[in-house]
Amino acid sequence: MTHPIATMTRRARGLALAAWFCGWLAATGPAHALDAPTGKVLLSVTGHITVRNGADAAAFDMALLEKLPQFSFHTRTPWYPEPRKFTGVRLRDLLAALGAPARANVSAEALNDYRALIPPEDWADHDVMVAYFLDDAPMLVRDKGPLVIIYPFDAHPKLRTAVRYSRAVWQLKGIDVR
């Protein structure tokens, strides 16, 4: 196969190379800025991240969260009698978008100051999710919302342990990457 660059003139070739390099930077580099939240801030991520939209944090409103790749699964939980559908963003995708280290420990904090540490074995190896929809509807604070960390408990029996249940933080308000 002939590379298209090989057929261009020298000048055009230089321009094309520059354009390609910029594109590569935009796709992979840390310089991608996060838009500022316009709505009510639901989640703020702090710690070892490279992408921020505030002084020391990346703040998300619902619109920003919904821009990230959406993910959903059904699972049973100890808190609902029936299996429920959860929709949100995978913790893995969220942290990647923020340029967090690949194997960082993550501390999740709830509105009631409840805190739990989520190790990379969990969020990197499983589809641990920051859910914003329950059965396709937003969650109220009184329904454990607006954000919930949820594990795909039905995917693996290993996940159905008290330790993992304790890491499923409701009423999530902040994430600290350590």
Binding site: W79, P81, L111, R142, K144
Partner: peptide
Amino acid sequence: QIRYDVFVSRIGLVDHER
């Protein structure tokens, strides 16, 4: 409001069939 909502959300955990 948040304190109240959090309080209410806790009640849901004990006010069910199980």
